[in-house]
């Protein structure tokens, strides 16, 4: 409460001024001093409102401060576009909806793969009864399409309404007070996000166990395990995409972590690499499975890809950092 009110007040006081490092430092120091003052006044038994009133009445004038710093007000035309509270909350709702749709979409894609592997395995083991072998394989492919096609629909729908938030891709500024609101929303989302990451990581690490258990029951059983693994991975992917998407939305609104200007560039490059590497991993997985029947070991391609990709990301991040220093 204390933090938010004082922070919002300072935000509004400094809103018209350029956001240089010097100004940010001053603002942080002043906030600390105002918090100290607040805490001490609060201990005298005064009410919240009274204390805030005193702290604000003893703030003074920012013009005085900027005059000393030799800073003139930010030119309104040059200033970054403002994101109003309504747009920020609208974007929050949009991110939730679009992350949900994307999450379900990716879940359907992996479930499609799971269904395909399952039907192909049933077919191979002659469990599809009257169906000819070719018809069985056709059925497997149809199952894949039946799940993937709606997924594509969901991906397209997830982008709907994005145009209204074009401002967010460039430089922007949150309207006074909005930052505090978004920060508190992000705070209450944080534990949910942590739980989803833990759950997803557990699903991801445990999923190959299904393959190992199935393999122990005989070679013909391995693909069933693969199918279960893919179903578990589909849940993992849902958790990652849905909760990760919401998390990213907050970071974007607050221009934190991944969304500072240098990070934005780094992510563009890594995104391009990921778009090639992961589909490639899936191709290797399915070819080695369907053509060579090595369902027992080929799942290892995913952890290997994940580690390699992590290494690439790490090296790239380091290089970008040294380049910055140079």
């Amino acid at each position: 409460m204390r933090m938010e009110t004082l922070n919002a007040y300072l935000d509004s006081m400094f809103a018209a001024w350029p956001r240089t490092a010097q100004v940010a430092d001053l603002k942080r120091d002043m906030l600390a001093a105002m918090e100290d003052k607040y805490d001490e006044l609060k201990r005298t038994g005064r009410s919240e409102h009274e204390v805030i009133g005193i702290v604000i009445s003893e703030f003074g004038s920012v013009d005085e401060l900027m005059g000393e710093l030799g800073i003139s007000p930010a030119d309104e035309r040059q200033a970054a576009p403002k994101l109003t509270e309504a747009s920020a909350l609208g974007y929050e709702a949009f991110v939730r909806r679009s992350s949900l749709l994307k999450g379900i979409g990716w879940m359907l894609v992996l479930l499609g793969a799971a269904a395909m592997v399952l039907i192909a395995a049933l077919n191979e083991n002659g469990a599809l009864g009257a169906l000819s072998e070719d018809a069985g394989y056709l059925l497997a492919v149809i199952a894949l399409f039946v799940l993937v096609v709606p997924a594509i629909g969901l991906f397209i729908a997830s982008g709907g309404g994005k145009e209204s938030y074009g401002v967010l891709s460039g430089d922007f500024e949150l309207a006074a007070g909005t930052r505090g609101i978004i920060e508190s929303h992000r705070e209450s989302f944080r534990p949910i996000r942590s739980r989803s990451v833990v759950a997803a990581a557990c699903l991801g690490t445990l999923s190959p166990v299904a393959v190992l258990i199935a393999a122990m029951n005989g070679e013909g059983q391995t693909p069933y395990g693969v199918s279960v693994m893919l179903a578990l991975l589909s849940l993992m992917l849902f958790l990652f995409v849905y909760y990760g998407g919401i998390h990213e939305g907050y970071e974007k609104l607050l221009q934190l972590g991944e969304f500072t200007p240098t990070k934005k560039e780094e992510n563009r490059v890594l995104g391009r690499i990921a778009a090639v590497v992961w589909p490639l991993a899936f191709i290797v997985f399915f070819v080695s499975g369907f053509v060579y029947g090595r369902w027992d070991v080929n799942w290892a391609v995913f952890p290997v890809t994940a580690v390699l990709f992590g290494a690439i990301g790490g090296v790239y991040g380091l290089r970008a950092k040294t380049k910055q220093k140079a």
Binding site: L26, A33, M34, F59, G60, S61, G67, L69
Partner: peptide
């Protein structure tokens, strides 16, 4: 006498 916050920090800067 209560020194205003902005007065204090202007003075520090100066």
């Amino acid at each position: 006498y209560v020194m205003k916050e902005t007065t204090l920090y202007s003075a520090f800067t100066r």
